[in-house]
Amino acid sequence: MKRFLTKCLQLETILLTATIFLVCYNAFFLFVYVMTQAGKKIAVVEPGSQYADFQEILHGVKEAGFLTNKDTSPEKNEGEFLQAQYFLAPTILDLNNADHQFVILDYTSPVYLNYVLKKINAVPIKDNEYQKILAQKRK
């Protein structure tokens, strides 16, 4: 009995017990995680699919502008620019630079959109329900 207790109180035994406990603990939470994922019914949408309408027009275009009044700082941006870049690759999107024939506009209000279109002398050629607009510069 004494030998058994001594063995139980050895550091290796304690650590082994802790390891077994942790494995069971992890297995339980992995099971919970799998079950919550299995219960999810929402379809996963490809990032940047809100710009899908522009893909055909921008096919073969090497560079396009991307204008926005949303926060584009690394800390607070919502990823709109990066999503557009991912979806429309290999077209390179130039953030906040209107010196391109095609320009994507992502603004929080139509008032800003109209002002910017007038300022950069462009006409909208495609828009969608996500309030994204693809504009082309007037010649």
């Binding site: 390891t19 077994i20 494995v23 992890n26 995680y33």
Partner: peptide, 11 residues
């Protein structure tokens, strides 16, 4: 095996 289970069962 315990060590690898600790990793692979970690959510």
């Amino acid at each position: 095996l315990l060590a690898s289970s600790l990793l692979l069962l970690h959510p």
